[in-house]
Structures are given as C-alpha cells and as structure tokens.
Design a protein around this nucleic acid. Structure first.
Lengths: 225, 225
DNA sequence: ATTTACAAGTGTTTATTGTACACTTGTAAA
DNA sequence: TTTACAAGTGTACAATAAACACTTGTAAAT
C-alpha cells in the first residue's frame, strides 16, 4: 500500500475456515448452524473477525478453536473474497483457510456442543452469503494439491490400509482409480511404510496397515498420485 | 464470518499490484518510488487502500490506474498478507494482484510521470515491508500458470515470432528450452496462427510472425509448454 | 475337514509424453 | 559469388501413464 487514504476506511476483515473430513468414503465439510440474524438458521463456514493485533493466520486458528474446539490444526490460506456486497450485514472482506482433519477424532459428541455438523460435499445445505463459492474454490485447490503433496493423510488415522487410501483419493477427486496403477505408485513411495499388522475388519484376508513417515518424506519431497 | 466482534476492529485493508513486463529477454517488474515516510525513498509495489464500497478486485484496478495510469488491465488475485507487524505504519492487511503487460506500451516517458520504474527481476532494489515476499509468491504463481495457460502472450505484442516467444518462456522460467521441442509443442496449438509476414529485424532469414487467436483457443482450452 | 465367499493383492503390454541431439535453409551484406 | 547468422526442421530413446484379469489368504458356513 502506498497512498494516504482519503476518508476513514470502514471495512471489517474476517476469516472463514473450510474444514474437510472423510467418512463413508465421502468427503465431508464441517459447518455450523447460524444462531443469529441475518441469515439465522442457515449453515455457514466457521468464521469470525480478525483481532487488531492478530496475524491473519493466527486469527483463522483462533476462530476455528473458538467455534469448534479444534486445536493445533494446520490450515492454509486459500483466497480472499472481497465483493462490496458479499455480506448482507455490512462491508466484510474475508480470507478463507482450509484444513483436513480426522473426522473420527471430532465426532458427533464434540460437534454437538458447538452446533456444528458434518455434511457430505454433495449434500450441502444452503449456505450464507458467498460461502458456496468459498467451498468451491477450496475444493478445487484441494483436488489440485492432493495429487502433488502428501496432504490427504491428514484425513486418515495414523495407520491406514491401501484400500482405504485409494477410496479416499477416489472420494476427493470423485473419479475411480485403477487399483494396480494406484498401488504401483504407492509402492514407489518409500515413506509409506507397511506394518506387520493387518486390518481384519473389512475382509477375510485382511489388508496390511501402512503409515506415512514424515521424516522419510522430507528426504525425497516428491509425491505423485 | 460469524461471531459478533468484541471490540472495534482497527485494521486497514490494502491491495498491492505486481506488474510484470518483458524486456531485453528478461522479466521485469514495475515499481514506484515511495515519496513519503515511513520508508521514504525506497521502492514499493503499486498499492493503496480499498474503498468502503469498492470490490476488492476493483480496488486493485483503481489503485493501479491512480498510481500508474494503466487501464483495463486484467489482474488476478495472488494471495493475502496479514502478519500483524508487516507494515511499520500501522495494521494493514494487503491482498496482492498480478498482471502482465506489454512494456513497450508503457515506456519510460509514461512511467516517468508517476515516479515509476521497470526493474529486471534479478536486479530489484530494496523493497518496503514484505513486498519482496509478495513478489516471490507472484513469481512462483506465474511460473506455475504460464505452463498451463496462454497468459504469457500478454507480455508480447499482438504479432510475435517464435524465437521471441521462446525467449520469453526462458526468461520467465529462467531455464533454457530446447528449440525443436518447444516448436513442436507450439505447432500443435492451432490457435497460434502463422502469418505470411516476417520479422526481418533480428536475422537475415527473417522469422515468421504469429498471433494468438483467443477464439480458437476457447474451442480447445488446452495449453501446455 | 472341506467348501464358499470376498476383498486384498499382484505384472505385463501398449500408448502417450518428454527429452536429447545436429544439420539445412533463406536472406542481406560484403 | 561468398559469407555470416539466426530460423527452421525430424528422429530415436526414455520415462510415464493407462488399460486390463487372475490368484491369494482367511473366516464363516457346511
């Protein structure tokens, strides 16, 4: 910025969080029920205003904690929405952040306390303001990034099976993947290590558990699915 | 956003424009000389505050016009910088936009009026605040996008030669490209149409002029270099 | 003990795309 | 007529992506 402003600026700055989870082989979104006007009763992203002395990134994390109890979640900025009339309650510019979390660790019980709810991506309720656009851009970004960075593991437990991983990818990308091609690529990633233990809950044969080894990944830094 | 704010928010919202040009086979950046404190005398991006009833995108265009005279420039949002202490003059959050323009249409004469100046990307002066970070992220985004979208043509005149185009790409990516491989890819793009006319200024033989046909491109929508 | 049901697991072939590499051509100027 | 020089052209090899079907291991049922 550079020029001295003419008259007092009256714009509020907010953040909105797009929280992805994975359940029943579908990508889900955490929304909260809006308990006040305007748009009372509709659903919205987890959002709030930025504090005067708060880094924008910190604001996103604080707002997420305040409204959902979720802590220490790694979020990334997506983009900023700044249409003058986007929020019917006044002039608000909002920067979106997104994160992927393990839904099973944020289950119905904890969710209920905050009037929050998980929705499958293709069954979203009506959202306030331009939150559907926000979701759209976050999903597009997720689909782009999930192919080149090992970020999808955030949606799975520390131990997961390859069928699980593949279904996760199919859910995110909403396309089916060839099992053998998928597994070939996975087997080239040395940082995906197979454990001795098997998951016997989904089949008679059982599927080997794998883990994502962060340290090993840092040595290669390449990922492609 | 969702929660009612506790105390009055005092954050100013700004935009900063990263304007790319191409000259002498190098990527350049348009900067303006800062004529006031703080950081007086240093160079900065073209930036200013967002108006109360102004769309964020419009603010970027208006600021660009006010400070450089450039009009009808297509800009895209890059990202938003929001560290609490990023601007030493107070709390300012700034969203960056970038554009590519034809440097020859914005020459020394017009530039001078605005105390602006073109700098090759690898010879940038010291910039104020976090503007170097802003430039970095815009350059990374440019390098990513220039391979998959026909955006680099904005940096060239309507008629250009293939040697020119290749040098442009080499300048942007800062790597050398194989001439034959480059030209093979170009020749697969039917929307890059060869004219009868040749540019005789750079060689005895002369190089054919080409143009980018927007309408034809829209039918294919695929680009890869 | 044997059979059944079923998801987990495994290789090969073909097509597509990327990469490396060197000579010929057309023209203006000498 | 020769020279200088950038523009222009094709082929072979390597790497990556995509298509495709059968075998294996185990628990449960008989």
């Amino acid at each position: 910025m550079n020029k001295t402003s003419e008259q007092k600026q009256q714009i509020k700055l907010a953040v909105d969080c797009i929280i992805f989870g994975f359940n029943n082989n579908r990508l889900e979104l955490l929304l909260i029920h809006r308990g006040f006007e305007p748009e009372k009763g509709k659903w919205s992203l987890i959002g709030g205003f930025v504090g005067n002395d708060e880094d924008l990134d910190d604001a996103a994390n604080r707002v997420l904690y305040d409204l959902s109890g979720l802590e220490n979640i790694y979020m990334e900025q997506v983009r900023t929405f700044g249409k003058a009339d986007r929020d019917s309650s006044g002039r608000v510019v909002s920067t979106t952040y997104s994160a992927m979390i393990l839904k099973s660790e944020y289950n119905e019980e904890r969710v209920g306390k905050y009037d929050a709810k998980w929705f499958p991506l293709d069954e979203l309720p009506e959202l306030i303001f331009d939150h559907d656009e926000m979701v759209g851009s976050a999903v597009r970004r997720l689909r782009r990034r999930v192919r080149n960075f090992p970020i999808a593991f955030n949606l799975l437990p520390a131990k997961f099976t390859l069928p699980q991983l593949q279904m996760l990818y199919e859910g995110i990308l909403s396309e089916t993947l060839d099992k053998r091609n998928f597994r070939r690529k996975v087997s080239q990633m040395n940082y995906l290590v197979r454990l001795e233990e098997k998951d016997m809950s989904e089949s008679r044969k059982g599927a080997y558990f794998y883990t994502f080894d962060e340290e090993l990944y840092k040595k290669e830094l390449n990922f492609n699915l």
